[in-house]
């Protein structure tokens, strides 16, 4: 009998704590597949955020560091500058990366730190129970925007890839989605490109993955994916915002 589908080698054989229907598991798997295919598990250091993926260090077989909230790009900078030949990635949510860690994110990008940032955008703070995030859509109801996000009061969402694409230090800024098979395949391609950029020392790469949070959105997993397609993708268009390997940008 031939196994046609198996756990990636760089993914640990443990049960994940994520809610049913959450897309974290898919993105974890994509990263592990890329690490396996590049054969770099022993040469990779991952940095976890504070958020739902705070315990991601239990799921990856490579060496892992748990960073303070928002500080993963700074921690990754410390590792990469110390050990420039290692592959270093951060895995961060929208609150971590685009609120408390905005400075760390922007400046790591501006410095062109040769690291890979995987950015999970599910438009909410998941771990703390669904509060308004910097990426929460206008009108979206959360625990701390119970009447819907009112842009006159709570301001506008941040489009991270568009913002970072203006910086010279950025090699890749690409937004993908984990909502369907075709998009998941594209997401993996983007993640592979981001790790490849490290190998070629091209600079800072960020892959923003639009994700779901069925629990805090109060939707079933399928409904959540539908909402992602209907509400999120129009506000956060998928695509490549900067890619230094493609001429012109």
């Amino acid at each position: 009998m031939t196994a046609v589908f198996d756990r990636p080698k760089s993914m640990r054989d443990v049960t994940m704590h994520y809610c049913p229907g959450c897309t974290h598991g898919i993105v974890h798997r994509l990263i592990c597949e890329v690490i396996d295919e590049m054969g770099i598990e022993g040469n990779t250091v991952g940095v976890c955020p504070v958020g739902c993926s705070v315990m991601a260090y239990d799921y990856f077989n490579c060496d892992m560091i748990e960073a303070p909230h928002g500080r993963a790009p700074a921690v990754a900078t410390g590792v990469k500058r110390s050990l420039p030949d290692r592959f270093v990635f951060t895995y961060q949510g929208d609150g971590d990366l685009a609120a408390i860690g905005t400075a760390e994110t922007v400046h790591a990008a501006a410095r062109g730190e040769n690291i890979t940032v995987i950015f999970i955008n599910n438009t909410t703070y998941g771990m703390t129970g669904g509060q308004m995030a910097p990426t929460t859509l206008p009108g979206q109801v959360t625990q701390t925007s119970p009447y819907g996000r009112d842009t006159a009061v709570q301001g506008y969402p941040i489009r991270v890839c568009e913002m970072l694409a203006t910086l010279d230090g950025v090699a890749l800024a690409e937004r993908v989605s984990a909502d369907c098979f075709a998009n998941v395949k594209k997401a993996k391609k983007a993640i592979a490109k981001a790790f490849g950029n490290q190998k070629e020392k091209r600079g800072f790469s960020i892959v923003e993955v639009l994700s779901t949070c069925p629990t805090n959105w109060g939707l079933s997993p399928v409904e959540a994916l539908e909402r992602l397609r209907k509400d999120c993708i129009p506000y956060y268009p998928l695509g490549i915002y900067k890619d230094v390997t493609q001429g012109g940008e």
Partner: peptide, 15 residues
């Protein structure tokens, strides 16, 4: 804040 977290990363990297 970033500086001390870079120290955290470098320390974890063993240098």
């Amino acid at each position: 804040i970033a500086a001390v977290n870079m120290v955290l990363g470098a320390a974890a990297a063993g240098v």
